[in-house]
Each structure stands twice: as structure tokens, then as C-alpha cells.
């Protein structure tokens, strides 16, 4: 064997096996990109179509009515040979102005005019309240599990419960909230009932996230502190929690996305199809907690299932979906980015 031949010994030769490997790798790649493309398709569809509702071509470029008004019915009618579209209020004013229009035949589409302001407010209220409950419960539970608990039957039981709680379908949480808060506690359809239902639903996420962040604080911090004569609580408060807190909060943002995005748990516990008053228009302070609210996800459900699809309703449907998707997506993106950054930053 001469030198030239031996130099070729390790050279890659194209053969069937190699081609098969390539082909199969391409299949895997295809699977990945199919997933990404389908996700992108959903986003693109809603962003492009929804942008038409939310943005305008002239200044201030944002359809402020849509974001700041309450939903109304849309009336479409022909007037002096022209097609007119008006919201409920405008239509009434129009009829007063033109008495001859009193009998004009108008097609009406509910919720298709006005805006979604009450829904945005309702969703924000639901998220704030439920996350406050979930965070206080969840962080404390995580502190117990990670700092105090010693392995034993009880702790295993707690962990099992958390794992299983994470797998309970959201509609079951809705049923539970309905049975317990709405009926048994007599809170009716209210913010309070929605808060607790959502908080319990998101509790496993918060506990897991908090525990992960607590685990990331090195053991040396605790030992060092204890060896200096700190009590357990002093150690946790001064030397563990401050370093775990950023992580806890970032990971919990993902919980916010979940809370904001769920419809099923609030369907019977907190959400109204339509409500004229804004949440702060209450007589007593306690009424604030015991009132139902409109919520974005529920509004999307209502406008996409209860009213027909056509060019007039499509605007509010896509507009609502757009606003909702953008809110949730921004929260989720912030969570993912912050988490990745945090992972890189804290290396003790």
C-alpha cells in the first residue's frame, strides 16, 4: 500500500448509510421547523389581522377608542345610498338628529363596536390579585420545602400533592372554584373567587420556580451564616432570600402568563360576558372584591363563539385576540429572557 492510498483511508466516502443519516436528520429538522412555523403562523395571522383594528394609518396611529372604550353593539345600515356603521351610542344620537331615520333597518352585531377597555382592566385586576396570593403562599411553601423540611413521609406527600396539582386541568379548577367560593362561601361570581381559583391553579408553578431559585443559592451561604451564630430564620432572611428573590420573581412571571391566559377557571368564577360599570365604580369598598369583571380571554371566547363571523365582527375578534396575545407574549418573553440572563449572571 503506498502512501497516497493510506492517506485516503480516513477520507469521508459518500455511501448509503451516510445519505440515510443525512435524510433522517433532515426529517428531524423538518419536525422542528414545522412546529416553529405553525406557531409563527398563528402569531402572524393574529398580529397582521389584529393590527388593523389596533393601529391606524394616521396619528396617533393607535386606535385609542378600541383600547379605552367599552364594548357596544355595532349597527350597519344604509343611509341615503351609503353604507353606515355606527356603535350603539352613535346610532342613537344619529337617530335623534335625523328623526326620519327612526325606522331605518339596521343590522346589529353585538360587541362589535366600541373597545375592550373593561376587559383589559378586568384581566389586570385578576392577574394582580391572584399572583399576590399565589406568590405569598408559594414562596412560603417553597421556603419550607427547601429550607426547613426534612425528608419524610409528610414531605413526600406534600411534593406529591404539588406535582399532582400541577396536572389538574384548568376546567376542574374552575369547577372547584365554582363549588367552593361561588356557592359554598357565597361569594358569587366575583373577583375574590377568581383570585383564589387562579392562585391555586398557578400555585405549583410558583412553588417549583421558587424552590429552584432557593436551591440555586449555594449551601455555603447558609453554613457560613449559621456558623456565625445566626438563627435559621435570620439566615434565610438575610442570606438566602435576598439572593433567591430575583429568580423567584422572574420565574413567577411565567405564572402570570398562565394566569392571564386561562379562560376555563374564570368562566364560572369571575368573568361576566358584559358589565356596564367599571370595577372601581362601587358603592362600598367590600363590593370591589365581590364584583365580577370582564376579562380578555373570556371576551375572546364570547366574541368568537357567540357571534357570527363576518367582516364587521372580525375586527373586534382579531383586535381583542391581538391585544391579548401581545400582552401574554410580552410577559412570557420577558420571563424567558430574564430567566436566561439570570442563569448566566448568578454564578457563585
Amino acid at each position: 500500500m503506498n502512501l497516497e492510498n493510506s492517506a485516503h483511508l480516513f477520507r469521508a466516502k459518500p455511501n448509503a448509510a451516510r445519505r440515510a443519516e443525512r435524510g433522517i436528520f433532515w426529517l428531524f429538522r423538518l419536525a422542528t421547523y414545522v412546529v416553529l412555523l405553525s406557531g409563527a403562523a398563528v402569531f402572524a395571522n393574529i398580529i397582521f389581522k389584529g393590527a388593523g383594528t389596533v393601529f391606524k394609518t394616521e396619528a396617533p396611529f393607535i386606535n385609542t377608542t378600541f383600547l379605552t372604550a367599552a364594548p357596544e353593539s355595532l349597527y350597519v345600515f344604509e343611509w341615503q345610498g351609503q353604507k353606515r356603521e355606527m356603535g350603539d351610542h352613535a346610532f342613537r344620537a344619529f337617530k335623534q338628529q335625523h328623526p326620519e331615520a327612526a325606522n331605518v333597518k339596521a343590522e346589529s352585531f353585538v360587541y362589535s363596536a366600541g373597545g375592550i377597555f373593561p376587559c383589559i382592566v378586568g384581566t389586570v385586576l385578576l392577574v394582580l390579585g391572584s399572583m399576590a396570593i399565589a406568590l405569598s403562599l408559594g414562596v412560603c411553601a417553597a421556603i419550607y420545602l427547601n429550607e426547613y423540611a426534612r425528608d419524610g413521609a409528610f414531605i413526600r406527600f406534600v411534593r406529591l400533592a404539588i406535582l399532582n396539582l400541577a396536572g389538574v386541568p384548568s376546567i376542574v379548577f374552575g369547577l372547584f372554584g365554582f363549588g367552593m367560593f361561588v356557592i359554598f362561601f357565597g361569594w358569587n361570581v366575583s373577583l375574590l373567587a377568581g383570585w383564589f381559583t387562579l392562585a391555586f391553579m398557578v400555585l405549583p408553578v410558583v412553588i417549583t420556580a421558587s424552590e429552584e431559585s432557593l436551591k440555586a443559592v449555594p449551601k455555603g451561604f447558609r453554613e457560613g451564616s449559621l456558623a456565625l451564630g445566626a438563627t435559621k430564620w435570620q439566615t434565610i432572611r438575610k442570606n438566602v432570600l435576598p439572593y433567591a428573590l430575583p429568580g423567584i420573581l422572574t420565574s413567577s412571571i411565567l405564572g402570570i402568563a398562565r394566569v392571564a391566559g386561562e379562560t376555563a377557571p374564570i368562566m364560572f368564577t369571575a368573568a361576566y360576558v358584559v358589565r356596564d360599570k367599571m370595577p372601581w365604580e362601587v358603592e362600598k369598598f367590600s363590593d370591589f372584591f365581590l364584583q365580577g369583571v370582564m376579562a380578555l380571554p373570556y371576551h375572546i371566547y364570547v366574541v368568537s363563539s357567540k357571534i357570527p363571523q363576518n367582516e364587521y365582527t372580525e375586527r373586534v375578534q382579531y383586535g381583542t385576540a391581538f391585544v391579548f396575545l401581545v400582552i401574554v407574549a410580552v410577559i412570557a418573553m420577558a420571563s424567558i429572557l430574564l430567566r436566561n440572563r439570570l442563569r448566566n449572571r448568578y454564578k457563585w
Partner: peptide, 23 residues
């Protein structure tokens, strides 16, 4: 106690020293 792996807290040097005293 002094540990095998040095474990200063992620605080300032001053705060590290005074940690035990503040407790």
C-alpha cells in the same frame, strides 16, 4: 468555623465582617 471552600457572602467586605455582629 472556617470552611473548606471559602464562602464569603455576596455582600461588601464590611458587611461580611459585620454580619455576625448585626445578628
Amino acid at each position: 468555623m472556617v470552611f473548606q471552600k471559602s464562602n464569603p457572602f455576596p455582600k461588601s467586605i464590611y458587611e461580611n465582617i459585620t454580619y455576625g455582629l448585626r445578628l
